[in-house]
Design a protein around this nucleic acid. Structure first.
Lengths: 196, 196, 196, 196
DNA sequence: GATGAATGAGCCTTCATTCAT
DNA sequence: AATGAATGAAGGCTCATTCAT
């Protein structure tokens, strides 16, 4: 009966993400509104406050990806090399989206009460935990030998994460992602793969 | 002849660093002045603009540390294990100071013209380059075997860097720094140390 | 033919009166609409502008009450004491409704072009004029002696008006309305009633 | 040592009073600033909030006037007629300043916590109480006869108050102030002055 | 040099009003 | 007729920066 809704909240969030990632939290709401092709009034109809908008825009939904779910099923059976390379690339791709947001929120001085973020761990930590479980399982399956799987997982995610970090922040790459991931995987597996 | 300067620029920068790192770029100059125990007028006598103050505060001087200089001298002679562990810990400690600033600047939307930063590379990249040179040298010395020393260096710095990142951003540690560094070094060396 | 009107203008005005009297002119149209159980769109269908709504809500219709009409008929015949007490109480009751609106309009800064108000005098003035006529008539009828009937009328209405004023603004009463009115009437009559 | 203060808080308050009394609470802070010949920034340096400014401007200081203090000293001795006329005129003059502010605050919807107002009674009530005490004293002194001095005081203040009210709101006067006050005094005294 | 009072541009947010259904 | 989504023009308030001492 009333005028139908014509503004997609996602469009606003996309615009906000673009603007905030480019100019930081000090970007004006006017610019966000303009970028979203929406009036400033409408912006605040959808998000009570600039901070709410910001957090919503930065809170890239981090629902478990399907490859995360499949990882544990490969324990004991699949080719570890290929599994880890695949996982590494997926992670890298995901982190390319997540890292900027995480850094942005972290640098905004907003009291990071994890509001809007996933209720559990922030994504990078979840990835570390997932990998730790995976390593443990492969150790139990007799295919890997590691003293401290948690640290290996941290190292693995760290190496990948930092690749993204350097890419975003310094525009630096030591080669293409695939090559990088392969080397990381090889390094870890050479050190931990159980000899036949 | 005139009244001597009685305000230390470093005191201002320290205060600014503290304030900006805590509240982000949107922290007010008033707060910085207060924290530094200085009038707002004096602040702007020393730094023409807020942005200049911010960049100066975040531009942790990154002159080459003495351990960096000594690293290349150990090529071919020292114990690689110990050398890398030492280097890793030094890096970790240094990055604990650098990372927050780097992230802050990156998130501030200030057109990162590298103004105020070192004229060459930003610190993390310099570390990667340094390590790459070191790896190359040890390869030539016949003590290491690596296909892509650049990637290994990147991995090494990345693993360490990410440890700091998680510490700062998520307050997460997979064990104490020393243990972490040791595992990282072991992993890399197991994969690359030339067998006698 | 078209859908019949289903929104009572009076319901809107009642709600508006309640809201404006409570929160002042700065109360939002949204609140009025909500209080009236009507959409904001409908509000502006009935009243072109907020100011129009406000004035309409504050313009308590001030058509001459029936007791006003009867007052002049009692000249020369009725008991002046009883007549004035009755009149005073009616006035008091009426002013309890009128005063807040008058004050509200006066304080709203709306250019009081008497728009929406009665075309003649605002109610309190009409009461003063009415009483003046009454006093004059009773003087001519030889039942009262007054030098300046206009001032006496003003005093009478003023005393009553102020009772309401204190009640509304300061929540102060020097006794119940009836007692107050009686004293006021007695005072005036003791000073002006012609001795037999 | 620093730039000397050049803005008088009173100048701001005067301007604010003028503007608010003319246009109501909805007058903009910009207008107040302009009227005061001051920047908007300075305004908010002196008054944290628009509401604070408003209340401060409307809170006409109501310290006891010296004639109030002298009134009780005349009990039993002075000429009651002249005393009351003098008091009435002083009150009238004072109320010309106070009434608009009282009405304004009352109509602004600000939660009248009496903040900024005198800590005891608002001025009009204080006047009623003062007069009540005076009447009681003269009764005890055997110069007046009254059943309910409180109501007579209320009536007296009410009559005067309303004169100001009509003047301000309707631009109506039933003669000059002096004549009005004289009639009011005569009326009351005719009814209550003890016959010799 | 040091101070802090003063400034004014700009920001977030509200709200009266219009519009499409 | 009735609705409520959408708008854009202010408005209150902040804050980087300048100024007068």
């Amino acid at each position: 009966m009333a005028r139908p809704v014509s503004i997609s909240e996602d469009a606003i969030l996309d615009a906000a993400r673009r603007v905030f990632l480019k100019h930081g939290y000090q970007a004006g709401t006017a610019q966000v509104a303009h970028e979203a092709g929406v009036s400033e009034g409408s912006l605040f109809k959808h998000f009570k406050t600039k901070q709410a908008l910001f957090l919503a825009a930065m809170a890239v939904e981090s629902q478990e990806q399907e490859w995360e779910a499949r990882l544990m099923q490969s324990v004991g059976t699949g080719n570890i090399h290929r599994t880890l390379e695949h996982v590494g690339l997926q992670m890298l791709r995901r982190l390319q989206v997540l890292m900027p947001c995480i850094m942005m929120v972290n640098a905004s001085g907003v009291t990071f009460t994890r509001a809007g973020q996933c209720e559990n761990d922030p994504p990078p930590l979840r990835l570390i935990r997932l990998l730790t479980r995976y390593f443990r399982a492969e150790i139990k399956a007799g295919r890997l030998v590691m003293a401290a799987p948690g640290i290996y997982a941290h190292t693995f995610v760290g190496a990948i994460s930092h690749y993204v970090f350097c890419e975003q922040v310094f525009n630096y790459r030591s080669g293409p992602p695939a090559a990088y991931v392969r080397t990381v995987v090889e390094t870890i597996l050479k050190a931990t793969l159980k000899k036949a």
